[in-house]
């Protein structure tokens, strides 16, 4: 059972490779964001634990001390985010290529992803528009909820109705995410253009809604379950400063990223299989 779940059809190497790329980027961003802080903390006898001690006084001191470094740090983060967006596009093309065919080497997938960059950009633009619309719908629904609730003057109902809008917008965003995965899979596996792939993805969602959505939801839930477990663990360990606690947390957190990439790989492999099966029908 576990063995079946872990199996990615011969893609373990590339899963590790993609997770490593993601973590490397995250470490770069982490280093950029904390470089100034760590220089100060390294002088402190308690090191990074100072952040958790003295009721927030040392953390506040640290932030005040580096307030002037805020702008360069923000600029650095801006650059890093652009780099991340580029990597996102690259990895976003590689996953469907790797999912469509087992045994593709990582650099071949990267080359293919780069070659199809215009198509990937087109799909990302359409998805981005969809996400923006979902956010606006959520915002608009919040206002509607508040107006409706205001008539009853119950502050609890006002807040709750406002909140209901966000899961709805979240569900919409999730649907767009699934569509985006499908469209990329169609574009990369069958060489379709952005518009053709968009249509094919929508068609597959309409034709096979249950299987597609259920599978997407399943893999999505698994990925978020890892995150949830890690969050619970960090709740327990966040304030602990022993070496064992720190190492445990770091290992678990890296495993979560790996687990997430693994679940995504399995999902794209499933999509690749479906598309291949549809082609041979």
């Amino acid at each position: 059972m576990i063995r079946a779940w872990l199996s990615t059809g011969g893609r373990s190497g590339v899963v590790l490779g993609i997770a490593a790329i993601e973590m490397a980027l995250a470490w770069l961003l982490g280093l950029a964001a904390t470089a100034a802080l760590t220089r100060t903390l390294a002088h402190s006898p308690v090191g990074y634990q100072a952040l958790h001690l003295a009721g927030g006084r040392w953390l506040g001191d640290l932030l005040a001390l580096h307030a002037h470094a805020w702008e360069p740090t923000a600029a650095l983060l801006g650059v890093a985010l652009v780099a991340w967006a580029a990597a996102w596009l690259l990895l976003g093309g590689m996953l469907p290529v790797l999912g469509a065919t087992a045994g593709v080497r990582l650099h071949r997938a990267a080359a293919e992803s780069l070659r199809r960059a215009p198509t990937l950009l087109g799909l990302a633009a359409i998805a981005g528009l969809g996400f923006a619309l979902a956010a606006f719908a959520g915002y608009a629904a919040t206002g509607w909820g508040e107006r409706a609730a205001a008539l009853r003057l119950d502050v609890r109902a006002i807040t709750l109705l406002g909140w209901v809008a966000w899961p709805v917008a979240g569900a919409l965003a999730w649907l767009i995410g699934v569509w985006h995965d499908l469209a990329r899979a169609h574009a990369m596996a069958r060489g379709k253009t952005a518009l053709q792939a968009s249509g094919a993805a929508a068609f597959q969602m309409v034709r096979n809604p249950v299987a597609t959505m259920a599978t997407a939801a399943g893999f999505g839930l698994v990925a978020w379950a890892y995150v949830g477990a890690a969050a619970a663990l960090s709740g327990l360990l966040e304030a602990r400063t022993s070496v064992a606690a720190v190492v445990t947390l770091a290992v678990v957190q890296h495993l979560v990223v790996l687990g997430r990439v693994h679940a995504r790989m399995k999902w794209f492999a499933w999509l690749g299989g479906r598309i291949a099966a549809a082609k041979t029908e």
Binding site: A26, W27, G30, T34, W88, L91, M94, Q253
Partner: peptide
């Protein structure tokens, strides 16, 4: 002498990976 600060970077890196990953590829 210098105190270890790597755990802080690791913690930040994790949250960054999670945040970017959840909207990631």
């Amino acid at each position: 002498l210098a105190a270890p600060t790597l755990p802080l970077v690791a913690r930040v890196a994790y949250w960054v990976a999670l945040a970017l990953g959840s909207v990631g590829p």
